Amino acid sequence: MKRPQLIGLAIAATAGVLAFVMVRGMVSRPPVEKTVEIKVKSSDVLVARTDIGLGQITNDSLFRWQSWPEETVTPGFITRTAQPDAMTQLSGSIARAPLMAGEPITPNKLVKAGQGGVLAAILPAGMRAISTRIKEETAVGNLILPNDRVDVILIRRMRGRSGTEEFVSDLLFGNVRVLAIGQQIENKEGKKTADGVANTATLELTARQAELMALSNSMGDISLSLRSIADLDVNAGPTAGVDPSSSRESSAIRVMRYGTASRAYGVN
């Protein structure tokens, strides 16, 4: 092979090796990550610094300002721009509902002290709180807790058409929220039963239903039937059953027990 050919071959080989090395380096080189900073408009929103319990009296150490995307700020949120002194203004308020750490504070979740007691603070507008006596056998063995939903049943004696006394059961109200058991208005952490010495249950009813509840307390024995969590409708209020002040009879079932007639009104 002639010398010029050898020189050309050597140059070609060298160029091929260099090209191979360059291509290999480009293929094996890790991709360059680029960080793009996008600025999102935000507002400082007042949130709970720690968990706040139902009925707890607040102070400014329980609140903090947190940056919140402006597009998600609803009209109910308290912003630093609109209320820079909100922490001081809300200090001493009472929590109408439990608040979790980081949850935005809204005016309807707190009520200022002096505008009523704790129970009045957690009552929705238009509703009334009324208590009824309970005992272990009429309150599901003391397993009913605040914020449970129950049906209220009245058991009373009535004189039948034959002149004999009969036991009658009426469903007074359904889906009733329990506000308190005794003086306990909130479930205690880790406790699965109500206070064993509690002998009253405070219920959330409408004004008319509270009137009927007071009447029923004097007419007979009240029993509370616990509703399943699968049947709960927290957005629905208590439903009406039988009016105990009415003498109208509905379809009834008569049962003979130990020679004494008893009757349960139909409520459908």
Results as ranks from 00 to 15, higher is better:
residue 154 L to W: 01
residue 123 L to D: 11
residue 129 A to T: 10
residue 122 I to P: 03
residue 108 N to K: 11
residue 138 T to L: 04
residue 91 S to L: 07
residue 88 T to K: 08
residue 109 K to P: 05
residue 105 I to S: 04
residue 117 G to N: 14
residue 160 G to Q: 02
residue 116 G to M: 13
residue 123 L to Y: 15
residue 101 A to K: 12
residue 89 Q to T: 04
residue 95 A to R: 02
residue 148 D to M: 04
residue 148 D to L: 03
residue 100 M to Q: 11
residue 141 G to I: 00
residue 107 P to F: 11
residue 115 Q to Y: 10
residue 142 N to R: 08
residue 90 L to F: 08
residue 126 G to V: 15
residue 154 L to M: 04
residue 89 Q to L: 04
residue 139 A to L: 07
residue 89 Q to W: 01
residue 127 M to F: 15
residue 154 L to A: 00
residue 104 P to V: 07
residue 150 V to M: 03
residue 100 M to Y: 12
residue 152 V to T: 01
residue 139 A to D: 06
residue 89 Q to S: 02
residue 129 A to D: 05
residue 115 Q to V: 11
residue 136 E to K: 05
residue 116 G to P: 02
residue 120 A to Q: 13
residue 147 N to K: 14
residue 133 R to I: 09
residue 118 V to S: 06
residue 134 I to W: 01
residue 99 L to A: 05
residue 131 S to Y: 14
residue 87 M to N: 05
residue 145 L to I: 06
residue 144 I to C: 00
residue 157 R to L: 13
residue 145 L to V: 06
residue 108 N to V: 12
residue 150 V to E: 00
residue 117 G to Y: 09
residue 93 S to Y: 08
residue 104 P to C: 10
residue 128 R to A: 12
residue 126 G to C: 15
residue 125 A to K: 14
residue 160 G to R: 00
residue 134 I to D: 02
residue 155 I to H: 15
residue 129 A to L: 13
residue 121 A to L: 02
residue 113 A to L: 03
residue 116 G to T: 11
residue 159 R to H: 01
residue 109 K to F: 08
residue 152 V to K: 02
residue 138 T to P: 10
residue 93 S to M: 08
residue 102 G to D: 07
residue 120 A to T: 13
residue 125 A to W: 08
residue 110 L to D: 00
residue 150 V to A: 02
residue 159 R to I: 06
residue 111 V to G: 02
residue 160 G to A: 01
residue 117 G to D: 12
residue 85 D to L: 14
residue 152 V to S: 02
residue 117 G to R: 11
residue 157 R to M: 13
residue 140 V to C: 09
residue 93 S to A: 11
residue 141 G to V: 01
residue 92 G to H: 09
residue 115 Q to A: 13
residue 92 G to R: 10
residue 115 Q to L: 14
residue 97 A to M: 06
residue 101 A to G: 08
residue 153 I to E: 04
residue 90 L to W: 09
residue 115 Q to G: 11
residue 157 R to F: 12
residue 128 R to W: 11
residue 118 V to Q: 06
residue 118 V to K: 10
residue 99 L to F: 13
residue 103 E to N: 06
residue 114 G to A: 12
residue 154 L to I: 03
residue 110 L to Y: 02
residue 106 T to I: 12
residue 96 R to F: 03
residue 145 L to A: 05
residue 160 G to P: 00
residue 131 S to C: 14
residue 97 A to L: 04
residue 156 R to I: 00
residue 111 V to C: 00
